[in-house]
Amino acid sequence: MSATAQATDAPLSDKQRRILEYLEANADSQTYFKSRLIGDELEMSAKEVGANMTAIANSATTIDVEKWGYSSSTTWMVEA
């Protein structure tokens, strides 16, 4: 169930950059992130976060993002 397909050079939206910055800032101390909790931190809905995570996973970034599971919110595994 990997969302880490090929990296693309497509520019990230403002929301995607905010999510990416949050993940990069926390990836060293945390591996698993729930869309709902990311949304709470960034004042977005879990749906907004989930809709943007695939673009983040597919962009050329400093982190690897993989859709990990679903339990009351999608969980993402993030590795720096």
Rank of each mutant, 00 (worst) to 15 (best):
M1S: 13
M1E: 11
M1K: 00
S2A: 11
S2H: 15
T4A: 00
T4Y: 01
A7F: 07
T8D: 10
T8W: 04
A10R: 03
P11T: 02
P11S: 01
L12W: 13
S13L: 15
D14M: 12
K15E: 15
K15T: 12
R17L: 13
I19V: 11
L20C: 05
E21D: 11
L23P: 07
E24N: 00
A25Y: 15
A25W: 15
N26A: 10
D28L: 11
D28P: 04
D28S: 05
S29V: 15
S29A: 13
S29R: 06
Q30H: 14
T31E: 15
Y32N: 02
K34R: 10
S35Y: 09
R36T: 11
I38G: 12
G39K: 02
E41L: 05
E43P: 02
E43I: 15
V49H: 11
V49I: 02
G50T: 03
G50L: 10
A51I: 09
A51C: 03
N52P: 03
N52Y: 06
M53G: 06
T54N: 09
I56V: 12
I56Q: 02
I56L: 00
A57S: 09
S59Q: 10
A60L: 12
A60T: 12
V65Q: 07
E66T: 14
K67L: 15
K67G: 10
G69N: 06
Y70D: 10
Y70G: 00
S72L: 01
S73F: 02
T74Y: 05
T75Y: 02
W76E: 04
W76S: 00
W76P: 01
M77A: 14
E79Q: 04
A80N: 06
